[in-house]
């Protein structure tokens, strides 16, 4: 009989307060539960278009969002729902966008996680992978020019790391010495292609350090606390004028690329092991128990997140559908 797998608790990093641990827990739970709900709605045919989840990567999303100060800015991709929540985007906003409602962040013009919110300084996701890298460098350049102690942060995957814009953006960030933070999610796959077939050297940390001469730290992206500490430190270095910073967060995409992809090409044994040992939500829950929270307390946080998701969906479902007559509004900020 093989050994049964057991969840590995997050490391206990000194100095990460109980409030921060609970804030991270709320964020990873919200993403997990909201995405599970989205998947159900998708299978019921209630969501138009496609669905991408970040199952297995919630800790990175939560940590990246929470590591910023309120005045900082962020450009998440579609695995990073929790980063939106950390910035004050609500569950209702997310569902409204998934459902294509008139009052969704994109007014029904784009779906799923393809949105941002100007009011929360969240740039709307751009599908063309790589584009957000130079964009966030430009936002950071604005801060540097104005002498503002603000930081701009973005995420992308190991697959996107091969896109040319990423090279141009990292190089530019280095030369201009701007307060930008890049969180690279190495989740093992780009759609169906494993990282080993995307690049010869799969250590993004080595490549960022050696290729662009930028600081980069590798972190276990399934450990919310460790990831938070690493990203927070990178953000503070960037804020203190130490220039651009990168983080390589290693995790596993625990589902297919999108709802339509069962991910059969993935190593199923490895996936099963990961699901038990390294589920980011359960790792953090196990840490909280070791920290002295009771099982009932931990469960009450699960329930609270579940209620928040249910309320967000209920609210979103009440929203009206968009009016086709409004489609041309806003093509230009300054119409002619």
């Amino acid at each position: 009989m093989p050994e049964p797998f057991v969840t590995i608790p997050c490391l206990d990093v000194h100095g990460v307060t109980r409030e921060t641990r609970l804030a991270l827990f709320r964020l990873v739970l919200l993403q997990r539960i909201a995405e599970e709900r989205v998947m159900t709605l998708y299978r019921q045919g209630r969501i138009p278009g496609s669905v991408y989840t970040g199952r297995g990567q919630e800790a990175v999303a939560a940590a990246g969002g929470l590591a910023l100060d309120p005045t900082d800015v962020i450009a998440p991709l579609n695995r990073e729902m929790a980063a939106h929540f950390a910035r004050g985007v609500t569950v209702g906003d997310v569902f409204r966008n998934y459902l294509g409602k008139a009052d969704s962040p994109t007014r029904g013009r784009d779906g799923n996680m393809h949105f941002g919110m100007a009011s929360k300084d969240v740039f709307p996701l751009v599908s063309m992978l790589g584009d957000l890298c130079p964009l966030i460098v430009g936002a950071a350049l604005a801060f540097k020019r104005r002498g503002e102690a603000r930081v701009a942060l973005t995420f992308w995957g190991d697959g996107a790391f091969s896109v040319g814009d990423v090279h141009e953006g990292l190089n530019l960030a280095g030369v201009l010495h701007v307060p930008a933070v890049f969180v690279i999610q190495r989740n093992g796959y780009a759609y169906s292609t494993p990282t080993t077939r995307q690049m010869l050297n799969t250590s993004i940390t080595e490549r960022v350090r050696g290729g662009w001469s930028l600081p980069c730290e590798e972190v276990d992206g399934t450990d919310a606390i460790a990831t938070y500490v690493a990203i927070r430190a990178a953000v503070e270095r960037a804020r203190n004028g130490e220039g651009p910073q990168a983080i390589e967060a290693v995790s596993m995409r625990m589902e297919g690329h999108a709802a339509h992809d069962a991910g059969n090409y993935m190593d199923q044994d490895e996936k099963r092991r990961y699901e038990t040992e390294r589920d980011p939500v359960e790792r953090l829950a196990a840490r909280l128990l070791l920290d002295g929270f009771s099982a009932a307390e931990v469960d009450s946080h699960r329930q609270a997140a579940s209620d928040e998701v249910a309320a967000g969906l209920a609210e979103a479902e009440l929203s009206p559908a968009p009016d086709p007559a409004s489609l041309a509004d806003g093509v230009y900020a300054q119409p002619l």
């Binding site: 740039f123 130079p134 964009l135 966030i136 460098v137 604005a142 020019r145 141009e168 953006g169 530019l172």
Partner: peptide, 15 residues
């Protein structure tokens, strides 16, 4: 780096 600096202009313009 045309993709880079034109993309950066958009980020700066956002700000």
């Amino acid at each position: 780096a045309e993709e880079g600096f034109v993309g950066a202009c958009m980020g700066a313009a956002w700000m």
